[in-house]
Amino acid sequence: MHTIPFSKYESSREAHSNVSDALDGEDTNQVEKLEDEFKEYVGASYALATSHGTSALHLAMLALDLKRGDKVVCSVNAHPSVPEVVRHFDAEPVFIDIEDKTYNINLDKLENYLEDNKSKKLKAVIITHLGGVTVDLERVYSMAKIYDVKIVEDASDALGATYKGEKIGSTGADIVCFNFSPHLKKNICNGGMLVTDDDEIMERARLLANHAIVKDEDALEYIYDVVDIGNDYSISELNAAYIRAQVNEQDENIARQREIAKMYSSALDGVAHVTIPSMENEENPFSLYIIKIDKNRDSFAVELREEGIGSGLHYIPLHLLSYYKTKYSLRVNDFPVALRSYQQVLSLPLYASMSDEEVKSVIEKVKKIAKTRV
């Protein structure tokens, strides 16, 4: 049986060539090149490559000088890495329910929260662009000014995605964090990127990304001082070499992702028990293709797996996870939209290297299983 995994890493000639150059010692400036090319690609003033997407997010919290008792607002439908980086500072994540079509944070509920909880302790809002579908960022940035909070965008699924024609990373957030090995779609290489237009934020991030070590240019190279508490967030030259090709090919990959999404939608529209995503947003990069199954989603996924088709779930709402549920005494019904979506959503395989035959095979299996539902 031909299996179609949920995700597959793309490995091009360019990636092989870059990695070979680094291994052969011919080009060991891969990190610097990646940062320069990335700045140009997204249109940001500064870019800092990190070992993982989570490292970029953690470094963002360091750069914002997050402290014990501070609050950071985020969607309840996000990967555990989002509130996790907040808790590492003994700061408090605050969860907001989602919209039922995009599964992104509900901006009305976010605004209500900000209006009702004005406090110096409220430091930032982390906005996750689920599947690369952006929220109304103009509204978000306007809220940030009114309520004096920083905006950090979690662009794990949004590499190459755009908002009103501008690439995510250049639209006006304080910090945007990318992940080259997104959650549930693991790459062969790990890496993240922190981008900002704020020189003070970048200066602090660069300092803390290397143990807060400072050196005097005129001193011997082994003489250094440490001026703060940092960590090591550095990416390796080999990872950077591979990721440079990934960034270079991303626009092409997004075009193919959109083609696949159209194939899925035209074939699955109207299939009983299956709801397809909206195709109205022309800027959707379809990093994920999320359908809703109205009955027994888990058994549907099991049957897909038995047919050799992988699937994903984005995400288990944070308030259902033991740590957050217990820590903050959260109840199952506290976030009704996220709960309802969680019981139905399923992400189908979608990646640029999928062949038309593989897409048709997934469609065929989804239709076959849907027919057995009563």
Results as ranks from 00 to 15, higher is better:
Ser361Cys: 11
Glu306Thr: 12
Val73Cys: 00
Pro182Trp: 05
Lys164Arg: 12
Pro349Trp: 00
Glu280Tyr: 03
Glu92Leu: 11
Asp65Pro: 01
Gly69Asp: 11
Val85Phe: 02
Glu252Pro: 00
Thr196Val: 07
Glu221Leu: 12
Ala47Gly: 12
Ala161Lys: 03
Thr3Tyr: 06
Lys367Thr: 03
His52Asp: 11
Asn112Phe: 12
Lys164Phe: 02
Ser51Arg: 14
Asn117Glu: 09
Val226Pro: 08
Arg297Thr: 11
Pro317Ala: 08
Asp225Glu: 14
Ala219Asn: 13
Asn117Ile: 07
Ile316Phe: 02
Leu64Met: 11
Ala47Leu: 05
Ala272Phe: 08
Phe286Trp: 10
Ser156Ile: 00
Tyr113Thr: 08
Asp136His: 09
Thr275Ser: 14
Asp294Met: 03
Ser142Pro: 03
Thr102Trp: 02
Ile96Thr: 04
His16Val: 13
Gln250Asn: 11
Asp154Ser: 10
Val31Trp: 04
Pro5Cys: 08
Ala212Asp: 10
Asp199Leu: 11
Arg256Trp: 00
Ala255Cys: 05
Glu14Leu: 15
Ala352Cys: 11
Pro80Ala: 10
Ile146Cys: 00
Ala144Asp: 08
Asn187Glu: 14
Val140Gly: 04
Glu252Ala: 07
Tyr323Asn: 11
Arg258Ala: 03
Val94Ser: 03
Ala22Thr: 11
Gly308Trp: 02
Asp90Gly: 12
Leu330Lys: 05
Glu32Thr: 15
Lys186Ala: 15
Pro93Arg: 04
Ser278Ala: 08
Gly53Asn: 03
Asn29Arg: 14
Thr171Ser: 14
Leu64Cys: 06
Val86Phe: 04
Glu40Arg: 12
Gln30Val: 07
Tyr315Arg: 08
Ser17Thr: 14
Ala78Ile: 04
Pro336Trp: 06
Val140Ser: 01
Ala245Tyr: 05
Glu221Gln: 10
Val247Trp: 01
Val374Phe: 15
Gln344Val: 01
Asn239Leu: 06
Asp97Phe: 06
Leu59Pro: 01
Asp356Thr: 09
Lys325Met: 09
Val247Ser: 06
Ala352Asn: 08
Asp294Thr: 15
Gly43Pro: 06
Glu138Asp: 15
Ala205Pro: 03
Ile229Pro: 04
Glu280Gln: 07
Tyr315His: 15
Gly69Ala: 07
Ile105Gly: 03
Thr171Met: 03
Lys360Glu: 13
Gly192Asn: 07
Lys295Ser: 12
Ser278Leu: 04
Ala241Asn: 02
His273Arg: 08
Asp218Met: 11
Val86Arg: 02
Arg373Val: 11
Ile175Val: 13
Ala301Pro: 02
Val176Met: 03
Gly192Trp: 02
Leu208Ala: 09
Ser234Arg: 15
Ile235Leu: 14
